[in-house]
Design a protein around this nucleic acid. Structure first.
Lengths: 342, 342
DNA sequence: TTGTACGCGTTATCAC
DNA sequence: GTGATAACGCGTACAA
């Protein structure tokens, strides 16, 4: 690897001068600049990011922590983050937390040990110590915290929407699957749905679930139809769970959507490929990742930032706020057309 | 962030001593060790990886380059890599290449600029200059190169298997979808299938495809059934394409598997969730990632490595070789039971 | 306009 | 056993 020193001697100047042309800082004679640039090109010199990072105490790296990239919801988020970071010349140190506290801590440690300039995390506990102690900006993705900046979808409204659409399409005996208790967004959408149902005075049951794994979802689906056989509408906690419900309905010979309507949540790529294609509440996952990255970049670039909760009106300071993205009902074929209302 | 210097003065020793106890190198009196350890704990000292990396010219980072994490085949690979790396205290700088040469180069550059100690890449051109020039070990994942170490699945055999199973289940008019020309594994499985078909003397047609995107796959599926309406068996280039074929067959009112059998490739999580669940050739993606990471770690740890192609029998040297993992036919419901052969 | 010299936090090589 | 100290590659005062 060529160093700045080699470039310097090759160009017959000092390292300081090379540094100046590289970073476009300070004066440098046109001729010297050309010599240096020639040397850089010829030696194919690329500055050593590690040395830079050590000196400046900041790198071009950001940390990205997601629960599990294997869960089809997260790759979209990751891609949104990556694309925007890439465009802005930031690179990503990536890790899966498995919602495991220890792994989360380990990753946060190595993030700071590697001088990352910011982190994006999808954690269940945004108020955890490891984030509070951080001296670099953090953006929570798909999760919310009152104290920190977040990018998330409007889960409550999503749940509400699901309930409305289902009721509008004639379901009278609705069962709502309640997602894992420790996952905030799952609870938000659950509450949204339940509140809407209560207001409309529609009968509903609740089935509790404790994970988003398909295997387990299958057994909750069985439980659902055995406990509440009259169910004619299911609001699932996400698309994976909805898929399990579809399978079970299928197995029981129930017609979808005639006997039972199903609405999922997320709109993962899978959803449109099912038979019948799944109606669902779409979270704009890619955009969420994209926005989170954008927000973090802003935070990084204007380091002294005031959070919107405490706007400082006396000094010219940029204020940033959390971003809530809208969700949307995606009508496909596990719900009846509104015309056909029963 | 606490530095080694602060730990040193806190413990009343020199930085050298602290370094010794941290790295367990050289002698250090039991009492001193305890003092230092206490200081480390109290100050919550974590060595600065960047400084380490600068001095040693090697980090605990590896580069992982995948075409597109949004393609459901890749998260499994990524997770396999991540899990094994995590266990061995390596972290990952991750990027999507989109099969784009420039992005690939950019990522490789930043990998070396950040002193990564190894890279795992799923590239279409393992013989590219940027890999040859690398002074650190590389493992190609899901792709092969004669000159370099790879971890991949036996695509040719997979294609052959698909053809065998399809023929054994009575399809007489088989159409094979040929995957993108620039993607080696796709061509391998295609060739495997075609060779097997030729040997068995079975009639077959070929439909060319140029990507793995579902949108485009839909039009090829249409092309398939309009050009070759008698097709009673489809060997798809992967599960996404197979799904598109299922959709089209569905639309045309063809019964699966009675009128037409379909076999996919990969066994992505989606496949088992379709209706009917998709029969496919399973690539052990997670294991592939896991193995690639393992191989790379070996390479990193015994830096002077002889590739298996040139075994050096005269000196005690470890030799490594590429790893080919077996594929497997996963019988689900888009193929008929063998008993029911037509 | 340019060069010298120091420091960023570590590790390793010496002396002591 | 332990402690100075010179690197690692870069950026920036400061001097020239």
């Amino acid at each position: 690897m060529t160093t700045i020193k080699q470039v310097a001697s090759f160009a017959g100047v000092s390292v300081a001068t090379v540094s100046r042309v590289i970073n476009e800082t300070g004066y440098v004679h046109e001729d010297t600049r050309r010599k240096v640039e020639a040397a850089v090109k010829q030696l194919n010199y690329k500055p050593n990011e590690v040395a830079r990072s050590l000196y400046k105490k900041k790198s071009r790296l950001i940390g990205l922590l997601l629960p599990d990239i294997t869960n089809p919801y997260f790759p979209l988020l990751a891609r949104g983050v990556e694309d925007r970071m890439q465009e802005n010349d930031f690179r990503i140190i990536f890790g899966n937390s498995d919602e495991d506290r220890q792994k989360e801590l380990d990753y946060m440690d190595t993030f700071v040990q590697n001088n990352v300039v910011g982190v994006i995390s999808s954690t269940n506990d945004p108020d955890a110590d490891c984030y509070a102690k951080l001296k670099i900006p953090v953006v929570f993705l798909d999760r919310t915290s009152s104290d920190s900046l977040s990018v998330y979808a409007d889960g409550a409204h999503g749940g509400c929407l699901a309930a409305q659409e289902m009721v509008a399409r004639g379901s009278k005996q609705i069962t709502v699957m309640q997602g894992p208790a420790h996952i905030r967004p799952a609870q938000d959408r659950f509450r949204g749905a339940v509140e809407e149902l209560q207001q409309s005075g529609i009968a509903y049951h609740v089935v509790e679930t404790t994970s988003f794994s398909f295997k387990e979802a299958e057994s909750w689906a069985k439980e659902l139809f055995s406990k509440y056989p009259d169910t004619d509408g299911v609001i699932a906690s996400n698309d994976i769970v909805a898929t399990a419900v579809m399978h079970e309905a299928h197995r029981l010979g129930k017609k979808i959507p005639d006997d039972v309507q199903i609405i999922g949540f997320d709109d993962i790529p899978l959803s449109s490929l099912l038979f019948p294609p799944l109606s669902t509440i779409r979270q704009p996952a890619y955009e969420m990742g994209w926005e989170a990255a954008g927000l973090l970049i802003q935070l990084i670039e204007h380091s002294q930032v005031t959070k919107s909760s405490v706007p400082n009106l006396h000094s010219k300071v940029l204020t940033y706020s959390s971003i809530q993205l809208p969700v949307k009902f995606i009508e496909r074929d596990t719900t009846r057309r509104v015309d056909n209302d029963g």
